[in-house]
Design a protein around this nucleic acid. Structure first.
Lengths: 190, 190
DNA sequence: CGTATTTCTTAACCCTGATCAATGGATCAG
DNA sequence: CTGATCCATTGATCAGGGTTAAGAAATACG
């Protein structure tokens, strides 16, 4: 899997053997089986993740009900809010599939940034891009109806639709599984 | 206003006269009157903004109707997506009030980062924080009803409720002005 | 295989926000 | 002061998602 990481990074910047060896030494890559809980509501973790393989899901517990707000698949990164502010996490982070992840703490990152400064520039640029992308997704969500959100998912993320159960997707687009069923039926008639 | 900026920055890092003078030289601070359009849908701008005073609004045009997705007030920053990806902007950015803003291009930022590297670390950390905050707002929006969103606004951003017209707020929480009126009426009865 | 469990679909009825239309208040220009 | 415009409110009716309950389909597992 380290080669997947190298391949991904090499598309963004030049990476040396030395740098990749440092990744190896820090033992940041690990496998997690399906349903592994990476972060529980109320916990304070210091781990950020980058998905090399698999799929993660973020959900909140609202009146005992799971409300999914995000999925993370290959080449996506998540730094839980508790890593940034040190407060108990408001949500759960779990593996929807068997997954291979890069897991790093801020300390490990700083160690790495000091040794290889260009990675800090990379991370700043990536964070800015992710912020812009996230803002855009947020906007799209706000200006769309559930039906439009489902169609948008089909267009831009068909992969995800096939990988996760529909009741998770329903939650993700802000409705109940029954309603997603109805929407699918409506759309099929056209 | 440069002193407001200095005061803000000094809460985060040590700032020297030399650094503030560089800000002056770059002429990044400017005033904009109410209703000024900072960015139009379809345009490609290279300007990022930081609000020293006033209020900005982001909106999309959906079927000829304005759909507000964000407000930015004092000490908030916005890097429009077009600055990051160079594609035409999907939204409009306008001043809701007379505003004083820091406006910078990526070139100006890089110039500054090269001269004063600690600002790059500051910006990376801020981008990461903003990403976490934005993700959290997104989540909150997703798991809330319009009524809950309005109550949440009152709790966390009463200031904004008093500064912008209700039909903008209604759009922001995803409903029509008439519905916000009804929600307010419902709530008043309790 | 066959059974259990999980996931998806359907139906009836309810509730909230959308739509359309009208009204009243506030603000502003002349 | 007087329209004109903008904004907030109200009412009637409509559409779409929520709720509840049942059953069908798919999947897992002994």
């Amino acid at each position: 899997m380290i080669n997947d990481l190298r391949h991904y990074l090499s598309q963004l910047i030049d990476v040396s053997d030395e740098e990749m060896n440092e990744f190896q030494r820090m033992e940041v890559i690990a496998s997690y089986s399906k349903d592994t809980v990476l972060l529980r509501e109320g916990e304070v973790s210091n781990k950020s993740y980058f998905v090399l393989k698999g799929c993660l899901r973020v959900y909140y517990l609202v009146d005992g009900e799971e409300r999914t707000t995000a999925f993370y698949t290959e080449r996506q990164a998540i730094t839980p809010q508790c890593v940034v502010d040190g407060k108990p996490s408001a949500y759960h982070l779990v593996c929807v599939e068997d997954s291979v992840l890069v897991a790093a703490t801020p300390e490990m990152e700083n160690h790495f940034f000091t040794k290889f400064p260009k990675f800090e520039t990379l991370c700043r640029v990536m964070a800015e891009k992710m912020l812009a992308v996230n803002q855009l997704s947020f906007d799209k969500y706000m200006i769309s109806s559930p039906e439009e959100r489902y169609l948008h998912l089909l267009e831009t993320n068909k992969d995800l639709v096939n990988r996760v159960p529909q009741y998770h997707l329903a939650s993700y687009i802000g409705i109940k599984p029954e309603s997603l069923s109805r929407i699918r039926k409506r759309l099929a008639k056209k």
